[in-house]
């Protein structure tokens, strides 16, 4: 029988690990690869969590440039192509007196992806170099990133609706541009980056944190 665990101390020091899939704990030495309850791969911390997060973050950083610089949609009107980047789309919304919608699109498509990358990079740096920052504040930042991340998909959904509505061939059509694919890559990689980041590493890096 296992020794009773002491609350208030990290489980890794007591030879205990938690399965992230089925939420049960087991000893680290006895179950090196698989969870005995549900059979999923198990490790005390997410394996190579920092490396995975960095790789996905770099991909996102690379793709955020084409996503913002290239046209995200093309409007084909009377045989003429009008390209639209994310930013010019927001400007035209402002011109046509829709500041609220412009604000939503600005937050979801420009602010959120950039802030997400910045926040995740900062937390990853703090963990890597063991900056002794307040772990609770770092976790709050991470939770915001995690929660708000899904809302970046908004722009992709809007594009899909626009494409479906404007489908009158050469008279009036909307097509997605290169930036749409790049933007999808940014959204997906940042979502996965947040998922592969193990929040317990924040406390591991802070030696004297409570």
């Amino acid at each position: 029988m296992d020794k009773p665990l002491k609350p208030g101390i990290s489980a890794i020091q007591q030879n205990r690990q938690l399965c992230r899939i089925c939420d049960t704990d087991c000893s680290i030495t006895g179950n090196a690869t698989y969870c005995p309850h549900c059979g999923s791969p198990i490790s005390p911390r997410i394996k190579n969590s920092q490396q995975k997060t960095w790789a996905l973050l770099f991909t996102a950083i690379v793709f955020i440039f084409p996503a913002n610089l290239y046209p995200i949609t093309y409007l084909l009107k009377n045989n003429t192509l009008y390209p639209d980047t994310i930013f010019s789309g927001i400007l035209s919304l402002l011109d046509s007196d829709m500041p609220a919608i412009a604000f939503i699109v600005f937050i979801a498509s420009i602010l959120v992806p950039i802030l997400k990358i910045l926040a995740l990079t900062f937390i990853s740096f703090a963990v890597h170099f063991q900056w002794q920052l307040n772990p609770k504040k770092q976790l709050i930042a991470f939770s915001i990133v995690e929660w708000i991340g899904r809302w970046s998909i908004l722009d992709l959904f809007v594009i899909s609706i626009m494409v479906a509505v404007f489908d009158k061939g050469n008279l009036l059509s909307v097509y997605p541009g290169i930036a749409a694919t790049s933007f999808t890559v940014v959204v997906v990689t940042t979502l996965f980056a947040a998922e592969s980041f193990d929040t317990r590493l924040i406390w591991d890096a802070n030696i004297d944190a409570k």
């Binding site: 919304l93 829709m98 908004l154 722009d155 809007v158 609706i161 626009m162 509505v165």
Partner: peptide, 21 residues
């Protein structure tokens, strides 16, 4: 994490306001 119906509803509203003009 991947079920995003509520995001779709907001997108639909954004699209509707855009299209109204």
């Amino acid at each position: 994490h991947w079920s995003m119906l509520e995001v779709y509803l907001i997108s639909l509203m954004v699209a509707i306001v855009k299209l109204m003009s």
